[in-house]
Amino acid sequence: MVRFLGALVGLFFAGMLLLSFLWGAVAYVSAPPAETVEHAFHEHPKKVAWSFNGPLGHYDRAQLQRGFQVYTEVCSACHSLHQVAFRSLGDLGYSEAEVKAIAKARQVPDVDPKTGEAATRPGIPADKFPLVYPNDVAARAANNNAIPPDLSLMAKARHDGANYIYSLLTGYQSQPAELLKKFPDAKTGEGLHYNPYFANLNLAMAPPLSAEGQVTYGEGQPKPTVDQMAQDVSAFLMWTAEPKMEARKSTGVAVIVFLLIATVLAYMSYQNIWANKEH
């Protein structure tokens, strides 16, 4: 009885699926789905040889500091870094006094101790980076209806994060003629910018890094080309997303070495105990 009912249920589901398949296949053959412009022109991120790649990778402190400088002078006009506290900038190699100065240069929201009204005060290392816009409505209003996302986790919130950010920053270009020929309706709209690394190819953000020397790097640092600045700020955003990466990798190496030895010992012990037992 169980088998009979089961076979009926099986025939029903399998039959419905095969019917759906036939229906879909006929539709697929008679009217194949049109290729979308995203399918045709979206590009995967360019690969950069980051210092933090690989199981032993480390952040390049000088690069992170340059990236922080790019963030501060360029990105921070619109993008917040809300998960990051000033105190953690010590990890980039800044001294305590430098961290204090960085925090002090920014106004963080607080309550006026005398009137109890909302007010701002200079930041202290314990504060997090303040929001650029108090809320989404303000962010939309100031940015042509597009919300500049928080960048704290951007490098983990996109596939292949650091490469993606770098590719996006250096990927602005004019729309290929081929694209317009193939997809005449896909012309980049007013106030948008064509970028093949962006999921739907057109984004609201204007190219933020446009000219060499837009940021002035300190003595002994590489030339601030657009490519260099893009790499630096991408590395910095990888750090903001994964500040514990170095601890993670170095702990990991020790754990793996330990486990390898322990597993070999466990295997020998296992062989040992079974030595006189055929199995």
Partner: peptide, 12 residues
């Protein structure tokens, strides 16, 4: 759809 059909067919 094909794979799911086989899944049910296999067991039932």
């Amino acid at each position: 759809q094909l794979a799911a059909a086989y899944y049910f067919a296999h067991f039932l």
